[in-house]
């Protein structure tokens, strides 16, 4: 209910300063806090007992959205800022779809994209859309070197990512969209905007004839956490917007994932959610792509 003792609290101003602080503590003792909307739950329930808490709110380099070359969203950018940013290319509109429906207003005013992807909660929207849109995660290593990790290599499983405890996620970025591309995300939960029982992200690119020539599908809410469904992307190749063609795509997704039954929904219902949500997001992503300026 109340946090256990926290020996030290720091509010560094720069990435370099964060590294210096991290170096002072044995692995696991120091914890970075971004928006804290999940982390504070863990700290209050004493699932986590950080000796040192390093608050990232003042690190200017981690803030903001840059739309100049592709899209870069600083790790400390809050959901509300992403949701309110209308310059996001339609290729990555799924990011905004997701950010607009995380939790509630208060959570969106505080929670950050970086916090969410690093926490990688088992039922979570942002990791899934970063996977589904093939985001690139820039990580500052303990040695100060910055490395780039593709989404495919970043998410290991629930609560596990490629970002080490002595590392700092700087941003998530996407290249300038090539050709006509669009994406969309939608989730279904027990209540409006609740955690996803199933969430579906689709991003696709179209050729001159509006035929899909590249696609990714990612799914949230399954027992293994947010995951890319390669078979889904493959099944979308050649998709021409014909609604009849959507069924086989969602069938391919269902075939290649394992849906669990739990208190929130049975496995067969999750499969139905994949069909329903899949149809919606495929259609929306396709429409967005056709409307995109190449």
């Amino acid at each position: 209910m109340f946090p256990a003792e926290i020996e030290h609290y720091f509010r560094p101003q720069s990435v370099g300063e964060i590294h210096k602080l991290l170096a002072n503590y044995p692995e696991g003792d120091a914890t970075l806090i971004a928006g804290g909307q999940s982390l504070m739950q863990a700290i209050k329930s004493r699932m986590l007992r950080p000796v040192c808490l390093i608050d990232l709110q003042d690190v200017a380099d981690l803030q903001g959205i840059d739309n100049a070359n592709g899209l870069t969203i600083g790790a400390m950018t809050r959901y509300a800022v992403i949701a309110g940013y209308d310059e996001i290319p339609v290729a990555y509109a799924a990011i905004r779809d997701a950010a607009s429906h995380v939790g509630d207003r208060q959570v969106r005013n505080r929670g950050t994209i970086g916090g969410s992807v690093c926490w990688n909660y088992v039922a979570s929207c942002m990791p899934t859309v970063v996977l589904g849109t093939n985001g690139c995660l820039r990580i500052s290593g303990a040695d100060g070197e910055v490395r780039e990790v593709a989404a495919d290599d970043f998410f290991f499983g629930p609560f596990e990512t490629a970002c080490g405890e002595d590392e700092i996620l700087l941003s998530v970025s996407w290249p300038t969209p090539s050709g006509k591309s669009g994406s969309a995300y939608k989730k279904w939960g027990l209540a409006t905007d609740a955690l996803p029982v199933v969430g579906m992200c689709v991003s696709l690119s179209l050729d001159g004839g509006n035929i899909c020539n590249d696609a990714r599908v990612a799914i949230a809410g399954l027992a293994d956490g947010g995951q890319l469904v390669t078979a889904g992307g493959a099944a979308l190749l050649g998709f021409d917007g014909n609604p009849e063609a959507i069924g086989p795509v969602t069938a391919a997704v269902i075939d290649s994932v394992e849906c669990q039954s739990d208190h929130w929904a049975s496995a067969v219902y999750r499969e139905q959610l994949i069909r329903n949500l899949g149809a919606e997001v495929i259609e929306r992503a396709y429409q967005r792509a056709t409307a995109a300026q190449p």
Partner: peptide, 24 residues
Amino acid sequence: FIYDEQGQQLTADFENYKIANAAD
């Protein structure tokens, strides 16, 4: 309110014990 077979209460917070919100 959900109890498992061992009588463990699995719904002792508002994430798991869902109260209807204004949107629903």
